[in-house]
């Protein structure tokens, strides 16, 4: 990987704004049984900036992402310590309803995972279970709006009854984004959303992330440092379960403070 390209890309990013605090993690530790996967991570996610988590495989970035909407609850051996807040509210407090939390903090997964139902049903499922549409017309509107926002409407508007699994990989991933958007979340977590996609589909998703920025607080985990440099304004570098460095993307890629960060982004390891 060439440092100059990364520098150039990062330098073209709009500068990270100060931003309003959306989610805050303080001294978070995550254990799988006796094994500690995350050590003492504190991080702020802001409304206006796209936050990227980078780091080598197994560094805990996906694990940490999944603590932000409590998807780790489904893993029996997982245990989370520390405090994570959404708009100042502790999401691990007993009074937090996890179903509502996941509606407010949506998620897009590594592998496109549309339901084996029609395109329409894929998008309408979330609003339906949360009762967001009173009538069929409202639902139609939500589906159209979500698909438009995910940049998929023009491609699928004539075949909404086709199965979601019949779409191409890139279209499936945009369908998954539309599905997440349909419940009108405040935060969208993306776990390596482009790792299963070709460069053209990847470019479309990245463009989409640009368009969604500001409306939703976005956190993206990525293996691809160029992608982190292209789409994010804030970057966090994870290594061996710890947060090594967190700062503006332009800073991290041009002038990292830590040698480990520098070694990683210049391709010395990982």
């Amino acid at each position: 990987m060439n440092d100059h390209t990364l520098n150039d890309i990062a330098a073209h990013q709009p500068a990270a704004t100060e931003g309003t605090l959306k989610m805050a993690a303080r001294n978070v530790n995550v254990f799988y049984g006796a094994k500690q996967a995350i050590r003492d991570v504190s991080i702020d996610v802001t409304q206006e900036n796209v936050t990227a988590f980078i780091g080598p495989s197994g560094c805990g970035k996906s694990t940490f992402l999944r603590t932000l909407n409590r998807m780790n609850d489904t893993v029996a051996s997982a245990r989370v310590e520390g405090q994570i807040t959404l708009d100042g509210e502790d999401i691990y407090s007993p009074s937090m309803d996890v179903v509502q939390l996941r509606a407010r903090v949506g998620m897009v997964f590594q592998k496109p995972n549309p339901f084996p139902k029609s395109i329409y049903e894929n998008v309408a499922y979330g609003p339906r279970i949360h009762g967001l549409a009173a009538a069929k017309a409202d639902m139609d509107q939500i589906v159209e709006k979500s698909l438009k926002r995910a940049g998929l409407w023009e491609e699928v508007k004539d075949r909404l009854t086709d199965s979601g699994t019949a779409l191409s990989g890139g279209q499936q991933q945009r369908l998954c984004i539309a599905r997440a958007i349909a419940v009108d979340p405040e935060v969208i977590l993306m776990d390596e959303p482009c790792s299963a996609l070709d460069p053209i589909a990847t470019a479309k998703i990245e463009e989409l992330i640009h368009e969604l920025r500001g409306r939703y607080a976005i956190v993206i985990v990525t293996h691809n440092m160029q992608q982190a440099a292209r789409v994010s304004q804030r970057t966090a570098f994870f290594h061996l379960g710890t947060l090594v460095e967190y700062g503006d993307t332009s800073e991290i890629f041009t002038n990292p403070r830590e040698t480990r960060t520098k070694d990683y982004i210049t391709g010395r390891y990982g």
Binding site: T74, A103, M107, F109, F115, P116, Y125, I129, C176
Partner: peptide
């Protein structure tokens, strides 16, 4: 599929 449904708050 379970992740997908849980992820949108089912």
């Amino acid at each position: 599929i379970r992740d997908a449904a849980l992820g949108i708050g089912a």
